[in-house]
Design a protein around this nucleic acid. Structure first.
Length: 649
DNA sequence: AGCTATTCGACCATCTGCTC
DNA sequence: GAGCAGATGGTCGAATAGCT
């Protein structure tokens, strides 16, 4: 009886499993084909979940061993003597640890490209082949002669096989797009797919010169004992080899992953994880392969903090300098704790390079946990990108300034005008008035130019919507309070392109006073360290353009003042030191930075080798500033430590 | 000419505090 | 409760400066 029941149960389970297996297998195969065709339909994480479920139910299912689309019938097919397998992968550091065990391993970044195998005979490149399905690939020999890193002739007469990854860097991708468009070819959607596409092409194969090749494997060489030996060997032959590092203990894995992550942020080369191999080749051959991956290699990918959404529309906003910046409004999507609806597209050239338009499915990522960043197009819709012809604000014609679209109507463009006033208000710190209230003031005709702010009365503010006595008085007081303003802020408020607060402070050090600064010639400014012809001219001519604005501001009673520094230049307790702050401190960052400058130090915004100290209250922060500081061995102080020194002043 | 460092300008979501 | 403002957080792209 018991037995019967158990049997029945297992039978039911098997039946369920069987149908689930075939369902999964079908879906996995379908998605694999989409993926290899360069048109993935679901997220990597979803796909992986599906695949691992299938593996659990049917570990030896042939679909799992399927590692690529069958090579197209028209191209010459080449059998790999040694199969080109795909890699086992994990998303968990813990898995990685248990896999590593006690073995020394070699880590490399994982390049998001296409595998390629180069066959040499007597030192000459005879054949290049893609991975294909792992056993049979395609002959792409004619293409690789265009790829600089694929060495055509070795320095020694060796008969070997070299394997690696072909990829297209972000930088070269942009150039490739340009050239493909010139040739009236279809626009490539992203760097990884165009590599696969180009290797399969019959014409325009010279475009392969935009690709690079990283070698990481060599077959047919005697006397190599370790994975590190392989890299050295390949390096000596003249190949670009993947950056690689010997890790002696599993404990070193974490720090190595941190390192890779930093490279990924650069994203010039599309790294998408890390690959680890046992260093000893004898251990490797002892372990051997499963049907679809080597047991001595493991790849690691970070759980994807990306999301996909459709572009609803692209909006173009003119800035105070007339630069028109595109922003993609997307269908709201959740990503690491926030709902994302807007994504910057940087500039007009960017929109062109990726052919961005309404309906495109794009992938985004939150960099620095805050700002959503466009990654790439997943599925484009038909059609071409679109640029505004006229300024969205003043309707005047737009011109190109480098990679950006620009509205040149600086005097009359409403957006630039309000941007100018807004910049002034921010620079001199007029509180409680921002974009909305300024728009109201402008549209009601309360003001037209910056200096008119200072002639407004309490009565004027009462005319604004939702503004009663309390608010009106506050606004009036806030504006009047900025009549006395430090010279650097005054100058910063003039919105001269190329000069920010830091730049003005530096100028004031050499030319103390508004009159002196207005008299500066470009030749004189070039004498100051940090200024060359270009920026000197830009600043001098900017000052000239603002002559009237300055005059009127002075006339209504705005008085810029030069604060006497407590210390002479080069003195003070923090002299010669550059500080960078990360994370929140007890006071606004600007306040602390001001205190640092007053004590003779410098306040920087990014960590470099010139940074003396990183100040933070979050010792375990994983921000990029922190990582960089640790990497460079820069001392890390708490806020308290900094304040102790400042208080001693 | 190529590299590195620095600055400017711009970006977006969330939370908090204030006024109406 | 609605609406506005302000602070916060870190990164990116472009341009420039200055060094080698």
């Amino acid at each position: 009886m018991d037995l019967c029941l158990a049997k029945a149960r297992s039978c039911m389970k098997t039946q369920y499993e069987r149908s689930r297996v075939s369902e999964l297998a079908h879906e996995v195969l379908k998605q694999k084909q989409f993926y290899y065709a360069g048109k993935p339909q679901i997220s990597d994480a979803k796909y992986d979940a599906m695949e691992s479920e299938l593996r659990k139910l049917s570990p030896s299912h042939p679909v799992l061993a399927y590692v690529g689309a069958a090579p197209s019938a028209t191209s010459p097919r080449i059998t790999h003597d040694v199969p080109m397998l795909s890699l086992n992968k994990t998303y968990k550091v813990d898995d990685l640890h248990s896999w590593v065990g006690e073995e020394p391993i070699v880590g490399t970044p994982k390049v998001d490209g296409n595998s390629l195998s180069l066959v040499y005979e007597d030192g000459l490149l005879k054949l290049a082949k893609t991975r294909g399905d792992g056993r049979v690939g395609e002959d792409v020999t004619d293409k690789v002669f265009w790829i600089a890193d694929c060495v055509p002739k070795l320095s020694k007469k060796l008969s070997i096989e070299v394997r690696g990854e072909v990829y297209c860097s972000a930088h070269k991708f942009a150039q490739l797009v340009e050239e493909m468009l010139e040739r009236k070819l279809e626009r490539p959607t992203n760097p990884r797919n165009i590599v696969a596409g180009m290797l399969g092409r019959k014409n325009h194969i010279d475009l392969c010169r935009y690709f690079n090749f990283f070698a990481f494997e060599v077959i047919g060489v005697d006397g190599l004992k370790t994975e590190m030996d392989k890299f050295e060997f390949l390096d000596n032959l003249g190949f670009s080899v993947l950056p690689h590092k010997l890790l002696k203990k599993a404990a070193e894995v974490e720090t190595y992953l941190e390192e890779i992550k930093q490279w990924m942020d650069d994203d010039e080369i599309g790294y998408d994880g890390a690959v680890f191999s046992y260093n000893s080749l004898s251990v490797q051959s002892r372990l051997g392969n499963t049907s679809h991956h080597p047991r001595f290699k493991m790849s690691f990918k970070w759980p994807g903090l990306t999301a996909r959404s459709k572009i609803d529309k692209i909006e173009w906003f003119p800035s105070r300098l007339g630069i028109i910046t595109p922003v993609a409004v997307i269908e709201p999507v959740a990503l690491s704790g926030a709902t994302i609806t807007n994504v910057t597209l940087h500039n007009a050239e960017h929109v062109k390079a990726y052919n961005l338009k309404r309906g495109d499915l794009i992938e985004i990522i939150r960099s620095g946990e805050v700002i959503p960043k466009f990654l790439h197009v997943v599925t484009p819709v038909e059609g071409d990108f679109d640029w505004p012809v006229k300024c969205p604000s003043c309707k005047s014609k737009l011109e190109f300034d480098g990679v950006r679209l620009k509205c040149l109507n600086s005097d009359e463009c409403p957006a630039q005008r309000s941007g100018f006033i807004l910049n002034w208000m921010r620079a001199v710190e007029i509180e409680d008035i921002s974009e909305k209230r300024l728009e109201q003031m402008l549209s009601m005709g309360l003001i037209e130019a910056v200096h008119e702010l200072y002639t407004l009365s309490v009565k004027d503010f009462l005319k604004l919507p939702a503004t009663k006595d309390k608010m009106a008085e506050k606004l009036y007081k806030n504006i009047q309070a900025t009549k006395k303003v430090p010279l650097a802020k005054f100058l910063n408020g003039l919105g001269i392109e190329g000069a920010g607060l830091r730049t003005w402070e530096k100028i004031i050090e050499h030319f103390p006073g508004l009159e002196a600064i207005q008299r500066i010639t470009a030749e004189e400014l070039v004498e100051v360290e940090g200024f060359a012809e270009k920026s000197a001219e830009q600043i001098v001519s900017g000052l000239k353009d603002r002559k009237d604005a300055i005059k009127q501001l002075l006339k209504v009673g705005v008085t810029p003042s030069v604060q006497k520094a407590k210390f002479a230049p080069g003195e003070g307790p923090l002299a010669g030191k550059q500080f960078v702050i990360t994370g929140a401190l007890s006071m606004p960052r600007e306040t602390i930075e001001k205190m640092i400058r007053e004590a003779g130090g410098k306040a920087g915004s990014a960590v470099s080798k010139n940074t003396s100290v990183l100040v933070t209250n979050e010792g375990d922060s994983s921000s990029s500033k922190m990582k960089k500081a640790k990497e460079l061995g820069i001392p890390i102080w708490t806020e308290e430590a900094l304040l102790t020194i400042l208080r001693g002043v």
